[in-house]
Amino acid sequence: MNIIFMNVILIAMILALLIPIVEVCKDNNVWQKMLALSSISSKTTMMIFIVSVLRDDWMIGVVAVIILSVGNAGFMLMAHIMKRMRNA
């Protein structure tokens, strides 16, 4: 019962993940793509979290937390680099 519920949740999350992936192909503006990227990264991290809880695996959960904070920091850096590159 529990496993089936978790599988349904994960498949719903995959569907939610597909929306920004499709959107990134269609849009032509760099900032729209950055939005989709930030959305995708937080969604993937949440999926890792769900899997770690599903398997009761502490190690994967730690990785998810590190990806969550470091990945976001990386995107902030990337947004600034993009801004500099477009302006120059």
């Binding site: 939005l35 976001n72 902030m76 947004a79 600034h80």
Partner: peptide, 13 residues
């Protein structure tokens, strides 16, 4: 972090 990323993206875009 998500709040801060939102601010940074808004500023940069």
């Amino acid at each position: 972090w998500n709040t801060m990323l939102g601010y940074v993206l808004a500023y940069c875009s």
